[in-house]
C-alpha cells in the first residue's frame, strides 16, 4: 500500500460522502453515491483485496446505483435537507 494514494483516495471518499448527504437533489445524491462506491473500490484494490474490489465495482457502484435511480424516478427528486 503506497500511502499517498491511500490518503488521497480516502480524502475523496470522505468528500463524496459529505457531498452525497448535503446536496439538495436526490439524483445528484445517486450519482455522488456511485462515485463514493467507486472510490471505495479503488481503496480496496490498493489494499490488495481484489475480490472485494471487483464485487464492489459491479454490485456497489453498478447495481445499487441502478436501484437508486429507478427508485428516484418512481418517487420524487425533491428533498428539504
Amino acid at each position: 500500500m503506497y500511502w499517498p494514494i491511500d490518503l488521497i483516495v480516502l480524502t475523496f471518499v470522505i468528500f463524496c460522502a459529505i457531498a452525497a448527504i448535503v446536496v439538495k437533489d436526490l439524483l445528484a445524491t445517486a450519482i455522488l453515491f456511485g462515485a463514493y462506491s467507486f472510490m471505495m473500490c479503488l481503496l480496496w484494490a490498493v489494499m490488495g483485496a481484489v475480490d472485494v474490489a471487483f464485487t464492489e465495482a459491479s454490485v456497489g457502484a453498478g447495481v445499487s446505483t441502478v436501484f437508486f435511480v429507478a427508485a428516484i424516478f418512481r418517487t420524487s427528486r425533491r428533498t428539504k435537507d
Binding site: 460522502a17 452525497a20 448527504i21 436526490l26 445524491t29 453515491f33 463514493y36 462506491s37 471505495m40 481503496l43 480496496w44 472485494v52 456497489g60 445499487s64 437508486f68 427508485a71 428516484i72 418517487t75 428533498t79 428539504k80 435537507d81
Partner: peptide
C-alpha cells in the same frame, strides 16, 4: 429528514465498517 438520505447514511456506515 428524507428517507432516501437516511438509507445513504446507512450504506456509508456499513462501508466504513467493511473498510
Amino acid at each position: 429528514n428524507n428517507l432516501i438520505k437516511k438509507l445513504v447514511g446507512m450504506n456509508i456506515f456499513q462501508t466504513a465498517i467493511i473498510l
